[in-house]
Nucleic acid binder design. Structure first.
Length: 464
RNA sequence: GGCAGGGUGGCUCAGUGGUACGGCGGAGGACUGCAAAUCCUUUAUUCGCGAGUUCGAUUCUCGCCCCUGCCUCCA
């Protein structure tokens, strides 16, 4: 079974064939850098990181472009609130974003363009749209895209212009010829950052940057364009309109949209204020737990965020680390010459990136490993598969012992180990009362002891 | 109002025209001085409701109920 994707454009699952054999060009909408990223952002980034890894694993050479929106109204507003320079705010937030992504195990894209570095490309695209009569300069000095001049408008989101217009929540703006027309370039107000253009000093509208940057790096037709479901309309619809109208070409062939992260069955978003930042979450849980939480649900399904959900992700990960720990305690661990992914895992990933199914294969492998260890059987093949799968998913990457002992300082470790040594003597002397007293003492400190063939090990008890 | 996506065991999450994957949890057992971990057995006559197509539907069709999202910035 080959690689298949559910293409939002047309809403069908279809075989994937890149435009150019062996190469995949993909663009993913990144973040607007005015604040910390939250769990919703984490989801997109992890989902497309998985896709990036999977495409490479499948033998493609991948050019992955993910932008930063570093100029926009919210950035200007936030910078003003902070009494901070726009550039310093965006620099800070980009650094924070990178920290979050590194913690989550997301690989850096091939290119991470920043909108402000692409003014000439955006201006050229807008000029081309004006030349073609598709964009116009309004009375207020805005350059607007005329939606009715683009016949395919609505193809991605399945919307019909007239339906949109009639039931619309869009404010009627007198400067617009049609309420759906959107801004390509807007004049700067006093004190705002501005760039020179044929229409005066100003800044670009939101949508044009993605069209300009994606086409600049990937050409006028490329393979995959991704982002959150909420970007489908109007953002992606507008990107298509701009790029196709200006350049011709098909723009993106496959559109992939991930579902939302919800809290209490409600979308997590900045505007509702019901969000947790990635930094918040990873201060309470190992970052891999957040990744596991995301990987455990298919990317297009809604994902309910809660403390309980994170705990469950952690417990699942614990099981995996438990196997790793047991394998590491084996005398002679070998890896096969080549780490082969099990076929069912490959099939699952090929099937529109079905990570829950892929995880099921991983857990089955873990179970077989445990069984083989219990029975003293050969572990090489399953362990090689286990490593191949966890490496691909970027899970279970920590040292197993460290995973279970995280958050304990050196002083406590010394204390724990001295108690374990004392208990060992008590056990040798068959003084089980003393032995149990020590176990109880450590349990009170949330430390669980495990007596194994190789001696006693300990781990931190997780608080549910 | 228009459009889109959902409703699967205690929780979570896959999936399929022939009665359901995995994880968490529960129960019993094995192992252990006691534990923990692991293993074994077990835990949905059932996949929102009703009707239809079919030898057979949770999976296809139609209707209904409920939930969420988009239609304004949003990953």
């Amino acid at each position: 079974m080959g690689l298949k994707f559910f293409n939002s454009l047309g809403r069908v699952k279809q075989d994937f064939t890149p435009l150019k054999a062996g190469e995949v060009r993909m663009y993913v909408c990144g973040v607007t850098v005015y604040d910390q990223s939250h769990v919703g952002h984490a989801r997109v980034m992890v989902v497309f990181d998985l896709l990036y890894r999977w495409l490479q694993q499948s033998g493609f050479s991948v050019c992955y472009v993910r932008n930063f929106t570093d100029i926009d109204d919210k950035i200007i507003q936030r910078a003003a609130e902070n009494g901070e320079d726009v550039f310093s705010l965006t620099q800070r937030m980009i650094a924070a974003f990178h920290r979050d992504m590194d913690a989550l195990g997301c690989l850096r894209p091939t290119v991470e363009p920043r909108a402000t570095d692409y003014m000439p490309q955006m201006i050229a695209m807008i000029e081309s749209l004006i030349d073609k009569g598709i964009a116009y300069l309004s009375d207020g000095g805005d350059v607007l895209f005329s939606v009715r001049s683009f016949s395919d408008y609505g193809a991605l989101s399945g919307k019909n212009i007239d339906d949109l217009a009639s039931g619309s929540r869009v404010d009627i703006d007198q400067k617009k010829r049609d309420p759906l027309d959107f801004v390509l370039w807007k004049p700067a107000k006093m004190g705002e950052p501005a760039w020179q253009s044929p229409w005066g000093d100003g800044r670009p509208g939101w949508h044009i940057e993605c069209s300009a940057m994606s086409c600049h790096h990937l050409g006028e037709s490329f393979d995959i364009h991704g982002g959150g479901m909420d970007l489908k309309f109007p953002h992606h619809e507008n990107e298509i309109a701009q790029a196709v109208a200006a350049n011709g070409g098909d723009f993106a062939k496959v559109w992939l949209h991930n579902g939302f992260v919800n809290i209490n069955a409600e979308k997590m978003s900045k505007s509702l204020g019901n969000f947790f930042t990635i930094a918040d979450v990873i201060s309470c849980y190992p970052a891999e737990v957040l990744r596991m939480f995301i990987v455990g649900t298919h990317y297009r399904s809604p994902l309910d965020f809660s403390d309980q959900a994170l705990s469950e992700a952690r417990l699942g990960l614990d099981r995996l680390y438990e196997v790793k720990k047991r394998v590491m305690q084996l005398d002679d661990i070998a890896l096969a010459d080549q780490l082969l992914l099990p076929q069912p895992f490959v099939d699952a990933m090929n099937d529109d990136l079905n990570t829950p199914e892929a995880l099921a294969v991983l857990f089955e492998t873990a179970h077989r490993l445990n069984k083989a260890i219990d029975e003293g059987g050969d572990v090489t093949d399953d362990w090689s598969s286990f490593v191949a799968m966890t490496d691909l998913l970027a899970l279970v990457q920590d040292d197993a012992t460290g995973w279970f002992q995280s958050g304990v300082n050196d002083l406590d470790v010394a204390h724990i180990e001295s108690l374990i040594a004392a208990r060992k003597e008590a056990r040798l002397a068959k003084d089980f009362a003393r032995s149990d007293a020590i176990r109880a003492e450590l349990m009170a400190l949330n430390i669980i002891l495990e007596d194994g063939a190789a001696g006693t090990t300990w781990k931190v008890k997780e608080l549910a």
